[in-house]
Amino acid sequence: MKIAVASDHGGYELKEKVVEFLKEKGYDFQDFGTFSKESVDYPDMALIVAEKVAKGEFERGILICGTGIGISIAANKVKGIRAALCNDVYSARMSRLHNDANILAMGGRVIGPGLALLIVEEWLKTPFEGGRHKVRVDKITNYEQGQN
């Protein structure tokens, strides 16, 4: 599984912890920045990752800003993206099982690194359950493609 990772300045420190975790676990990933605490706009970072996931260049993405809210809103503007803001392990698991979330968003000023890494681990290992949930995800996809 190829994973695209990015953050704005508010999520930079947590992103660095996530990148370290991904390296340690042997995941195939690419860090698209930001690479310092210097201010950058979260939509720019979100759209880089969301476009790459939507085009199929990466199977999943992880985005981090201060709260996770702005970066998830921006990512969800890209067709084919189902970005889920998760602040707990249960939500991370359910975002994959029931929603087939392809981007995980987190808030670097909301959760600490220990919890964040548990969230990332759960989100990456959890498959999409399909079944009745696929029908629901397909309804979203169809609407997005103008087939409502």
Rank of each mutant, 00 (worst) to 15 (best):
Y12L: 13
G130D: 02
G56N: 05
R82K: 05
N142E: 13
L115H: 04
K37S: 15
Q30F: 09
L117A: 09
H9C: 14
G108M: 04
Y143D: 08
M94V: 08
V19K: 12
Y42A: 12
V5T: 06
I103C: 05
E20Q: 12
K23H: 13
Y12H: 14
L47M: 14
N142F: 06
L97H: 00
K125I: 05
I62K: 05
C65N: 09
R82G: 02
G107Q: 00
R93D: 12
K37A: 15
L115K: 11
V137F: 01
S91E: 05
L47W: 05
N76Y: 05
C86N: 09
L97S: 08
M106Q: 02
C65S: 13
E51Y: 07
P113F: 11
G108T: 00
K2F: 00
I48L: 10
I71P: 08
E122W: 03
H133M: 02
V53L: 04
E16K: 15
G11P: 13
S95I: 00
N99K: 02
F58E: 09
I103Q: 01
G112S: 07
A6C: 11
G11I: 00
D44F: 01
A92F: 06
K55M: 11
Y12Q: 13
V49H: 03
N142L: 11
K134N: 12
F21Y: 15
R109V: 06
Q145N: 13
S7N: 07
Q30S: 14
N102C: 04
V78W: 03
F128G: 11
V19D: 08
K37Y: 06
A84F: 00
L97Y: 00
A50M: 04
V78H: 06
K17V: 10
G70Q: 06
D138A: 05
F32V: 14
S7W: 01
G68P: 09
L97K: 02
K17S: 15
I81T: 08
V137K: 01
F58R: 05
G10M: 08
A6P: 11
G130S: 05
E24W: 03
H9E: 10
N76R: 03
C86E: 03
E13T: 14
